[in-house]
Nucleic acid binder design. Structure first.
Lengths: 201, 201, 201, 201
DNA sequence: TTTTAACCGAGACGGTACGTCACGTCTTGTG
DNA sequence: CACAAGACGTGACGTACCGTCTCGGTTAAAA
């Protein structure tokens, strides 16, 4: 988790404790609405209504919309358990991971990331808090693909390519922002002209 | 240009013609305000006031804020005349172009691109219209850097690397969205571990 | 007529003369729209459209909406040629004229007069100009009814009652403004308890 | 009261209850502004500002400007405690009440009543709700003046004249609408030629 | 057990930007 | 010049959210 709760565990004295289930209901509703209608059209009021929760219950936990969204996105990524299968070759492993990534970006991630970036820019602290999980997932996938390729003998044991999954994600996002299609041709280009060359230095 | 005017050349006869100078005044004001205060804090009313224009004159030309911003960003990019100098070597040429790009992204582009992406996603047609100029600028720089390197003999005349400037821009944007710093270390990493390997296949 | 034309017959020098037919088209459209949608919802733009006329052609003749409406109402009243029939007795003459008046008020006049009154109050000059025709019509009816009653011997030749038709119109308008019904009972009351007593002093 | 609150006593449970003091603050501001600047120039925003209230707080209670004004006028009339003094004779009592009425009409009532009439006609229910208080005030004054005259022996104990104060108000309003002056001569005429004859049948 | 304080859903509050619409004026081209 | 068309600056309209606040009621730990 990340920004949530502002005061993670303080309030030393009495009173009814917060109901943890609300937290999840709110985040779930936020994720659903982000995917449905996008960042701008998602309102705190709609999140509250969908979660069956009062607005104050949201503002008690997050200082504003941007922070709520940050947590919602983090939650969303945490939910996906990114474990690329062994498809038999480096090339096909890359193809699989790239296809998967593109699918996700086209689904929701793209718009969310961009909408979120607005929040990031308006409050720089956010950004620093929110990338933890995602990065580690990417790094795990990176290491896994690489070690398989080494075991297969496709690349030398000493190979140490850069963060090629970041490169893939960045290029995909960039094309999205520019309104270009994320199609099969792009996936091909990405694997053949960018990723494989970077790994096979 | 792009979205502007809704009906680029419609009602052929009758009535006072639109005053083209308003168009520019509005876009200029929009660009200035975007850079000053950001997407959210930029209001249509403030754009109108700064441009010395009525709100209706804006809404007559653009259906909403998102579309106006889309055009404003396009205009902004059109204004920049991207001509990378010859710094003497491929490596330093890349360093120069990367530094320049990072600077621009940190300045305004980043937030704008992201804010824009929201608009893009809510109206898919926008995206398709707005990348023309920017892409061609990038392609010119790409070709220029490459031909210089070939003339210097740094790379073979037959080299045909992928769109490495897109890769650089994408990775930078990606880090921005994730709240990571776009610092000198990143620029180094980008040039040494990504761009040069991609070119020197 | 009344306010119309601002400069009734001036502009001594050349140029295309005003097209008098426009005047009537505008007034007709204004009357129709007033009756259809009321004062507030009647817009200059809709009058212009219905009349097939440019807005400037209206503003060239009348300084504003209020004045146009003033003329339109006057025109409307001028159109009705109020000649009460001889029904055989003073009482039935009064009944006839009262019924007629109520009908007219319920139809359009009521709302118009009230809407118009707003204009009157915002520009006091208007009022002074616009009552001419209507008053003279009322006075003609007043005199006619009275002379018939005298000829029939219902009232003395020397009788000189006050402007009872004004009283009738005023009371009807007042009830309208107060949201009370203008029904048969009211007409009865008006004739029996107000008008006849005022005449038969 | 009248239109106010749309649903006088609806949502029985939940939520912060409406603050009744806002209601009065809004109506007071509306009355003041109506008197100051008139119906057209009175804007909802100015009412809100003067009352120290958000626009939404007004629109939560009234569906639009017309209905707010309707209530404001009703309130205004409710505030005036109409108790005509005993001036010693029927004639002077009538003069007093007529002068008072004219003064009020010239002040604000006239324009308000007319502006209101527009609302009345666009929503017939309004009218039926809003005349209660005013009528009863008029009736009280009517009865008072009459009983005094009877005590003085000016008119027979059995006299039962029609609603002469309605007649007076109606005629005054009618003249106002027609742009005729409500001056001393009119007051004279009203008392001598209309009211006294009606009473002294 | 009673108190107490923070929790909860609901929704009113003061603001503010939105996008629409009409005003009355100005600017075209065509008679 | 008048005219039809319609763009212009202006400013009010009514709507929708923002983030805060208040209400009656609930819930657990502290007294």
């Amino acid at each position: 988790m990340a920004v949530r709760s502002q005061l993670e565990a303080d309030s030393p004295r009495g009173g009814r404790p917060r109901d943890g289930s609300r937290e999840q209901a709110i985040l779930d509703s936020a994720v659903a609405l982000l995917a449905d209608v996008g960042y701008d059209a998602m309102t705190i009021e709609s999140v509250a209504a969908k979660a069956g929760v009062g607005k104050a219950t949201i503002y008690r936990r997050w200082p504003g919309k941007a922070e709520l969204v940050a947590d919602a996105v983090t939650t969303m990524h945490a939910a996906e358990h990114y474990e690329p299968e062994d498809t038999g070759s480096l090339r096909s492993d890359l193809r699989a991971v790239v296809s998967d990534m593109i699918e996700r970006i086209e689904g929701v991630d793209g718009g969310l990331l961009c909408g979120l970036a607005v929040a990031v820019r308006s409050d720089a602290k956010l950004g620093k808090l929110m990338d933890g999980h995602k990065r580690s997932e990417r790094e795990k996938a990176h290491a896994l693909i690489l070690s398989r390729a080494k075991e297969r003998g496709e690349i030398p044991k000493t190979a140490d390519p850069p963060d090629f999954l970041d490169v893939a994600a960045g290029l995909a996002l960039f094309r999205l922002v520019n309104g270009e299609a994320l199609d099969v041709a792009f996936a091909d280009y990405l694997v053949e002209r960018i990723l494989l060359p970077l790994i096979n230095v």
